[in-house]
Each structure stands twice: as C-alpha cells, then as structure tokens.
C-alpha cells in the first residue's frame, strides 16, 4: 500500500499561483464572487501564503504553498461525528461529501486552516459549466471540502496500471498543482517507495514539516535553505 506525499521546494516557488488555478479547474472548485470572497468565503484547496521578512528596505518576500497536509495523525478526523473525515489505507485524509453534515468541527481542528465550507450551492456562469471535470463531484451547500491530492488522478492511474498489469511508476501521478507548477517546486509521489523522487526530497536536510510541533505528522515536506523559516 502506498503512502502518498508531496514535497514543496520553497526555494523554487515564485508565488505565481499557477497551482491555485490548476487546482480550481481540476477540482471544480467554485469561485464565489468578489462580494463573498471579501467576506471570507473564498475556497482555495491550495493557497500561496506570502510572508515578508526583514525591515524595509531590506525586505524579502517568501512564498509557501499550503494545501491539506494529509496528516497521519490528522486532528480533523477523530472530531468528525459521521466519519466524513477519515483516513484511507493509502494515507489519504479522505473527505466524504455524502457523509458530511456540516458541523465544521474538522475545519476548526485543522491547524493549517486547509478546509473550506460551501456556504452556498455552487454556480457557474454559462458556458463555464462545460469545463467542469466529470471525474470530480460537485459539492453542494453545507459540506466541507479540501485538497484530496487529486484522488481522482490517483485512482485513475491505479486503474490504468492494473489494466495494463503493471506497477505504478514514480511520477506517473501528478496532481493538478504539481502538473501546473512551472518552477517544478512541487513533487508528488509515494513516500513508502524509498527511491521515489518525493521520498528522496522528504529525507533532504533542507526539509521540514509545517507546524511540526503540533504533532500532526503531515505528508507534505517543505524544502528551504536553512536561513529560511
């Protein structure tokens, strides 16, 4: 069984936001309009956090793409009363929309604020509904949603590999953000395979986990030079 993980090289990230756009279009994430966005209802399964370091004029800008960290000890999971949020065998932090009754407890428990709530039914202006991805379900009002590591692509690739009766190749699965990253800052793969690109990066001395001291054991490794936070 695999353990999916990601590595984000912060030294490569230039904050372009292509991952955000790719994620939105792959996962049918509805945009909520400027008015609702200004009221804090925007949904971005991946976001690029910007931080400034140093005092003016010696200011440096830092970017950090943050998505669901697919934690091993995910705080969002045990608090869910209906098992909507739980752990799959291949280490994904699953969010089952059917089971979600919208307590939003998981979002409160998530230290990364990586979970988003559908405040309204999503809508797309015509003809934008034609670009919806048929492999991803549309979330209706009142459920939580979050980054799935593009589980539809994982399942699709697994199915393809099984059809061709072979093992998955490293790098075969690319979540939308990884695919969209021009700087190749994001790497996705199987952490249980010690030779995979992502596990080599996860072992890198430059690597660290976000909010490691909370004890969530995330599957995302952030790589940065030692001077960086």
């Amino acid at each position: 069984m695999a353990r999916w993980g990601m590595a984000a090289d912060l030294d490569r990230c230039n904050g372009c936001g292509a991952c955000v756009v790719a994620c939105h279009s792959e996962n049918n994430i509805s945009t909520v309009g400027d008015e609702q966005a200004s009221r804090g209802r925007a949904k971005h399964w991946i976001r690029v956090e910007r931080y400034w370091e140093g005092d003016f004029p010696d200011v440096r800008l830092k970017f950090r793409p943050v998505m669901c960290q697919q934690c091993d000890n995910a705080p969002c999971e045990p608090v869910c009363p209906t098992y909507a949020s739980h752990h799959t065998e291949d280490g994904l932090n699953a969010q089952v929309y059917n089971r979600c009754i919208g307590t939003r407890y998981c979002a409160n428990a998530c230290p990364y604020n990586a979970r988003f709530f559908d405040f309204f039914n999503p809508s797309w202006d015509k003809p934008l509904q034609l670009q919806l991805n048929p492999d991803v379900s549309l979330r209706e009002v009142g459920v939580m949603e979050k980054c799935t590591f593009c589980v539809q692509r994982i399942r699709g690739a697994q199915l393809q590999a099984r059809t061709e009766d072979r093992a998955l190749r490293d790098g075969e699965i690319q979540p939308a953000c990884v695919q969209g990253c021009a700087a190749k800052a994001l790497v996705f793969g199987d952490l249980e395979d010690p030779e995979s690109h992502v596990s080599r990066l996860a072992r890198s001395p430059r690597g660290s986990k976000l909010l490691e001291d909370v004890g969530t054991q995330p599957a995302v490794t952030y790589l940065a030079r030692a001077t960086q936070v």
């Binding site: 909520v32 309009g33 008015e35 609702q36 309204f120 039914n121 999503p122 809508s123 797309w124 509904q129 034609l130 919806l132 991805n133 048929p134 379900s137 549309l138 209706e140 009002v141």
Partner: peptide, 11 residues
Amino acid sequence: MQPTAVPSNDG
C-alpha cells in the same frame, strides 16, 4: 449571491 441549481457534470 443567489444560489442556483447545481449544474450537472455533463453540462
């Protein structure tokens, strides 16, 4: 924003 019916995936 007025909520509208969920468009189905096939358009």
